[in-house]
Nucleic acid binder design. Sequence first.
RNA 1: GGGCGACUAGCUCAGUUGGUUAGAGCGUUACAUUGACAUUGUAAAGGUCAGAGGUUCAACUCCUCUGUCGCCCACCA
Length: 944
Amino acid sequence: MPAELPKAYEPQKYEDEIYQRWEKSGFFAPEAHPPWVDNPDDPKRPYFSIVLPPPNVTGTLHMGHAAMLAIEDVMIRYHRMKGDKTLWLPGTDHAAVATESKVESKLIKEEGLKKPKEELGREKFLERVNKFAQESHDTIVNQAKKMGASLDWSREAYTFDDKRNLAVRTVFKKMYDDGLIYRGYRVINWSVKGQSTCSDDELVYVERPAKLYYFKYSKDFPITIATTRPETKLGDTAVAVHPDDKRYKKFIGKEYKVNFLGQPLIIKIIADEGVNPDFGAGALGVTPAHSAIDYEMADKNDLRMVRVISQTGHIDINEPENIHRENDFYVDSTTWEAAAAAKKKFNGLTVSDARKLIVEELRNSGLLEKEEDISQNVGTSDRFGDIVEPLPKTQWFVDVNKKFVLPHSEITGIADGAEVSLKQLMHTVVENNQIEIIPDRFNKTYFHWIDNLRDWCISRQIWYGHRIPVWYRHTPPSTTPLKDGSFIKTRIVSGDMYVGVNPPDDVENWQQDPDTLDTWFSSGLWTFSTLGWPEETIDLKTFHPTSVLETGYDILFFWVARMILMTTYTLGTIPFKTVYLHGLVRDEQGRKMSKSLGNIIDPLDMIKDYGTDATRLSLLIGSTPGNDMKLSVEKIAGFRNFTNKLWNIARFMLMQINNEQLTTNNREPEAKTLADKWISGRLMEVTKQVTDNIKQFRLSAAGEALRAFTWDELADWYLEIAKIEGNKSEILNYVLNTLLKLWHPFMPFVTEQIWSEMKVQETKNKEKFLMVEKWPQVESRAEVGAEETKNNFVLIKNIVIGIRSLRADNKIETAKKLRAMVNAGAKASLLRENDEIIKGLARLEEFKVEEKIEKPKTAVGFVEAGMEIYLDLAGVVDFDKEKKRLAEEIAQTKKYVQAQEGKLANKDFVSRAPAAIVEGEKKKLEEAKNKQAKLQEQLSLIHS
RNA sequence: GGGCGACUAGCUCAGUUGGUUAGAGCGUUACAUUGACAUUGUAAAGGUCAGAGGUUCAACUCCUCUGUCGCCCACCA
């Protein structure tokens, strides 16, 4: 007998050591193919690759990461065991804003700096950020290792390292040359707090109460407008009404010179379909400089743009584009003086102070007609948290609608050299199914997002990020608009500007654009920048497009869509074939886990208390793609129990396997008994189920099938039978080998540990890994009699269950041996062959199998598959109770019989349903009728 | 305002093209326990599949409507 395993599995004892051995073995890298692969260098050998969604470098592992790592590791380990060239490439994300502000507040807190960026300067500050990132990098990496993730650390990438920076610069330059990146003066989302732009997707809308003010700009203005932001009206250049609004139709096209509390305005009345005549006053003041929607309206109607709010969030009506001395409106000196007074009055006020003042003045001058409480959606900055101030600035944009020539295309439906837009590319690859999104309902969301996509603002005013590879001869060109009468039209500022992958030769005469790129710009390149692009590396050729992208559905737009954009544009191909979206991990009440709620389940605590395998299973089983999952400590504890169960199953099996016969060589032995045949058949079925389910990304179903097999069939039945039949070395060995392999992707540690105990027994060599064993094959052998085997076994099983059930009902203690007998009819020989099993499992001293038998007087009975089984209770039976029990069962059976008869009496059913279904229902009816009759007979035989 | 999802046992969830007497885990109840495992075993209770219509021989499954909850998108200013 092999050396015994400890009674309980203690994950903490093994996990770290196993991970180190795995890592040292080199098998995480695709170069180290499993030893049994015959043709490792065959170019046709399939590959499987996943690039890990990079966690923030300064972050710590949370359950979301844990779920991601567990799901991806299952896929990776499965494909590695299948013999594919398998690469799982790790990396971390520099998380520009998040990291920068973390370091900033750290410097303030710990070193007493007031404004760290100003005080240290760009270079020194970035040094500090880099240092911090470097230090905390190891934390998240080590935590990923704790999860058992079989990542190829030799290829680790960072979104902000030199290689990725080169990729970023290269793509930027290419897009600029194609005219897809432009510098423009447009209304963008500005975070006053963060002093930076943010993209449309980074806005979070918050519902809050607001006041809607109704007023006229001045007494002589004909239309009342309504607004929640009176202070922006200082920059109005139009009033918009619905084209069909009878009240206002006559004003459309007219232009008014008004004095708005001292501020001179020229207001044009325009018509726009978007104006809702029933909301507010049915007329709205158009502020092109401080509202994205007004900006679009202004663009359509060729309006002027007057900026009145500065980037610090103060009123500032002194911007160059605001004062138009050429305009005859201002020739009038009184107006000019009024304008000067207005400036003096409002300038320097914060937005909210200005609002108060304006409302006050409107009220005093009798212009304010109404105040109304409404609820309003305001956009806040996801990163900084403050309400975003739309204002015009010169920024860099990616044009998503502009057509360009795609020289090389591997995209179905788009030919080499075709003229396309980025939007079209993004649309096509999902529509033509080159990229499959799981679950597929997210296709709809994705298309909707693309259809509404506007140009992407990519420049940010923070320091920790990829610097824009643009240099200006002196200072950045002025943002003063051209004197073409149009203050709206996007224009690309030319002049002394250099765009290049590398700095200009005489860089000392140039100044680089101070801005950095949106972090998603570099993340968008992730699948190919990590593989070495722009170099033409072997990795790129071998592993791209990647097989699967697995990530949370919450970053479908931020990241997944941008990767599709960047990859189709740059390489003319898809970044990945399948997108697997997992849900959010929530607490047991369905709430998000957060510090403030104190409901965080820390994966590292769980690993410590219950082991990694249990933690992984709790995230894998019982959750489906795209749906949030609820997690509780109890669930994890439950899987800890299962881990221990598996350990003890193995422990027992190893004790049953004869020392000389122990082998990790997986040949299926000949099945001798019915139970043997049954368990081999079931194992084969389960192998097929698990394999199919993993292939179809149904990991929960795969795990659930395996769990049910392992516990309910193998442990509860076959191993119990093995105790009775004995002498099962070979088959137990085979089942154990297969079982460990099937479980390995889900619970790598406990399976590897058991395997290495076996390896030591067998070869005295620990350095052979289950991790690279060959995945069990599903043999397409002819399953002669497989169905019959199963049915026969189920019959035995049901007899045992029936007897146990009667015992329990009659409160017979487990230890007491009873006598049972059966009217076996045609099944007599089957039951005789297996009577030891029945006797053992049902605790019988005698199991009498006869073709025909009379019911003993002191017995109770039941009917199974047409046989009557009697359990002799030797006088302890309570006949009243027994009568009741039988009557209940008869009633139930009767109900079923009636239902079946009704079904079969229905002519439509018999004529229209497939013959096989009808046959099946007939058979069920016969069996039930038979059962009913026999139960009836049993009842009638009770004389009390 | 538009869209999506969920609603199945006390709780957490499976249920793959329509055909099962609707399943699992946890929990509950009863009994057991030095022989692989109490991180256990045996047995049991527990469901009008949110509601109403419809299609069909047949609906948890397909269609329509309603309700409750959740999420995403959308700057009625």
